[in-house]
Design a protein around this nucleic acid. Structure first.
Lengths: 90, 90
DNA sequence: AAATATTATAGCACATGTGCTATAATTTGT
DNA sequence: ACAAATTATAGCACATGTGCTATAATATTT
């Protein structure tokens, strides 16, 4: 009989890296002294999405990051100013 | 009668920014002299996805960018070493 | 020019990002 | 301790990212 080969596609959620991004975002936001709500407003996105990013519940898209960076009025390389860990997909 | 209010959620595809990212990726990949296929292999992702990013057909996630950056053995801030245009959602 | 390598497209399926809305939990200020 | 502000969670719906596979288009080499 034919095998039921379930081929599991591996998508990735890079928790380690996303944690560093979240940390950096919180830092910058704190420096600027603006709330998640205010940032969401300025970036024209939802508070829930900002919160999801900061609590590492989601794997944001590059466009989303671009919006945030613009709203924070900070260079892109500033938000990404951290060292990526070697990678483990746990 | 009740109105058929279609409320159009606005998602964003930041073509301008993504074009710059694509350009930077191509540049780095060229410098390193590796093909899309080789990069895909090293990053453990598909050739099609690399191509989609370089031709601005997709809005990649941060985790995807992390994989690419690791495979290119280049700092994160290097891939993002460009100036974001002010933003237009055409 | 033919062969080979590289890049671009395409379509399907599944997983997930995000908007939207509401509520809960936590922190801050009085 | 209370009130107010801020942050975190949650669930639904829809759009889309990505793997997978195949093929087409283009560029490179011989």
């Amino acid at each position: 009989m034919e095998k039921n080969d379930i081929k599991p596609r591996k998508l990735i959620f890079d928790k380690e890296g996303l944690q560093l991004l979240a940390k950096r975002l919180k830092e910058i936001r704190a420096e600027k002294g603006i709330s998640q709500e205010e940032l969401a407003y300025r970036a024209e996105m939802t508070l829930s999405q900002i919160a999801r990013i900061e609590t590492v519940k989601t794997n944001p898209t590059v466009s989303t990051i671009f919006k945030i960076v613009r709203a924070l009025e900070v260079p892109l390389s500033d938000l990404f100013n951290f060292e990526l860990p070697p990678f483990s997909n746990e």
